[in-house]
Amino acid sequence: MAIKKFEIPELLKDKPSHGACQGCGHGICWRIIYEVVEELGYKNKHVIFHDLACGSHGLFATHGHAFSGAHGRAIPTATGYKRIRPDMLVFSYAGDGATYNIGMQHTVHTAARNENITAIVVNNTNFGMTGGQMSATSLIGQKTTSSPAGRDSKENGNPIDIVNLYHGMDIAYLARGAVDSVPNINKTKNYIRKAFQKQMAGEGFSLVEILAPCPTNWNLTPAAALDRMENEIFKIYTLGEFIERSAK
């Protein structure tokens, strides 16, 4: 039996630990992103634009070009960079709060322009960095520090699902993965690969949402957080590929 050897991506070697909480999904996301960057041969021909939320823990944990701009603005900052250096692999990395709350105008208009960048959105259904407040994707009934009785649609509005929002949008690629299990991690890695390949083929905008646990703010153990994903979150936010423009 062939034994698969796991190597840390070069881009993560000899760097300080990222400092995210135990059981956090962000660490797995970075790992698979940089695996794909290296597998596709874009090491050091890539630049990541972080949001300054929990995702920015990865900023100084990697080699290569990495930048953290303002909360919610990673997508426009990545856009500006890509327009000047189209040969680079350029992607944003931000949470659900950044992408669907404060930065929603960019999420809509960047897709409308079909900008040739990739947005990676780590959806943990709350504002992790600021202590677990309700975000655009918090589920109905989800208790957060700003919806302590549980999200109520009358009080707090309804969750936003990017798949519905992007319905009919002429973009290159939209997929949703998760980092709760090995099969899902592998699938998500493929989504990221596809998104990057489409960008480098000039097909336009790709968004990969990654459902990820935030045990700290869900008040759950890392293991129970994974159960919550399977039992609650996947029922509302379905996994898979939703938009894929066929290559012309």
């Binding site: 050091n44 300054l52 900023l59 080699h63 930048f67």
Partner: peptide, 16 residues
């Protein structure tokens, strides 16, 4: 921007 060698850090600037 600068060309990077293996293991080199590029622009790594945050809003902090």
């Amino acid at each position: 921007y600068k060309e990077l060698k293996d293991g080199e850090d590029g622009i790594q600037r945050g809003g902090y």
